[in-house]
């Protein structure tokens, strides 16, 4: 039997997802046994043209990580879609935009100004900006164009499966790989995780059913390690985040930041977390309630840390 032809690609991402694929440990041997890696820029020497030359649907499955932010990302996404039988949005960036997606709070112009002019460490008196095309003595140089809107993979091409996480936990990665290797695939367009419910389900911290009088940032308090962090005023996103990761962060005292995305069936993860937070404030005084709410720093950034491009508005009406 032919080995499964597997491609891995990184678009706009940090590289963490590529590392995460290795986190499966010795199971990688099992992968090597049953699969043949045909494309993996971060680890092996392939050229784009190698992929271009492949006939359509030559690749059995492509694990695509990273958001779609540049013309190169878009080009590769489309090409890999054509060449792959199964397209997997692997990791939060490909799935829901993730940290690169936060760029959607700003316009491209303001981001470039910030980076090439305003940051304290920048010295750019000539106001030189990167150009997509530059004439050099050696010839024309082309670098990919940065888009105004960060998109997810599914907003660019048709995606068959989604693997959540920033990066996906080892067991989630294995769940996806196992399914691919064994050909026992779930319903198309589903999110592959051990849970479709919110993280709280698998978190061992004790919830006492307590409302919140004040919200804290993690450095401001030392939480009781046995008790629910949200009930202690920390912005633990577990209530509105898909589980499957094993709730390691909250159980280690760090609030969940929401990287597994919305729970099954929920559109706009951020507004649902917002609603939950707004509903558990321990006060019946409108003025006090507003003061408590004001204790949440950068709410939009917190609620949409991973999911801005898949939120209802997808981006801010920013300048």
């Amino acid at each position: 039997m032919d080995k499964l032809k597997l491609a891995l690609y990184w678009a706009s991402s940090c590289g963490g997802c590529d590392i995460a694929t290795l986190a499966i440990g010795e199971k990688i041997l099992e992968v090597a046994e049953t699969a043949e890696i045909v494309f993996w820029p971060v680890a092996m020497d392939f050229k784009y043209k190698d992929v271009e030359r492949m006939p359509d649907k030559r690749i059995d499955a492509c694990l695509f990580n990273g958001a779609i932010r540049t013309s190169e990302d878009e080009h590769m996404a489309k090409m890999l879609r054509t060449k792959s039988k199964i397209m997997v949005a692997y990791g939060s960036c490909a799935y829901e935009g993730c940290i690169p997606g936060l760029a959607n709070f700003f316009s491209l112009k303001s981001i470039l100004e910030r980076v090439y002019e305003e940051t304290p460490s920048t010295d750019n008196p000539g106001k030189v900006y990167p150009q997509t095309r530059v004439q050099m003595p050696e010839g024309d140089l082309e670098i990919p164009e940065l888009k105004n809107m960060v998109k997810t993979l599914a907003q660019t091409v048709d995606v068959d499966y989604f693997v959540p996480g920033c990066p996906p936990e080892e067991k989630t990665t294995w769940l996806a790989l196992e399914a691919l290797l064994n050909g026992k695939l779930p319903e198309r367009r589903s999110v592959i995780s051990h849970s479709s419910k919110a993280l709280c389900e698998e978190c061992s911290l004790v919830r006492e059913g307590r409302k919140v009088k004040k919200f804290y940032r993690p450095y401001e308090v030392i939480p009781d390690p046995e008790k629910c962090l949200l009930e202690q005023g920390l912005l633990c996103y577990g209530v509105a985040t898909r589980g499957g990761c094993g709730a390691m962060c909250p159980q280690a005292g760090m609030p969940c930041t929401g990287c597994y995305g919305a729970v099954e069936g929920v559109i706009d993860q951020g507004v649902h977390f917002l609603t939950a937070l707004g509903s558990i404030i321990d006060s019946t005084d409108p003025v006090e309630i507003k003061q408590i709410v004001d204790g949440i720093v950068d709410p939009a950034g917190t609620f949409y840390r991973y999911s801005l491009p898949v939120s209802l508005f997808r981006r801010a009406k920013s300048v």
Binding site: F105, G270, V271, L274, T275, L277, G278, S279, I280, I281, S283, T284, P286, I289, K290, I292, V293, D294, I296, D298, P299, A300, G301, F303, F313, A316, K317, S318, V319
Partner: peptide, 18 residues
């Protein structure tokens, strides 16, 4: 009162959305 909390948060988020 639950509405007060949610709306206060929503308004902050909306303004961040421009």
């Amino acid at each position: 009162y639950r509405t007060v909390g949610r709306m206060a948060l929503l308004k902050k988020v909306l303004s961040q959305f421009g």
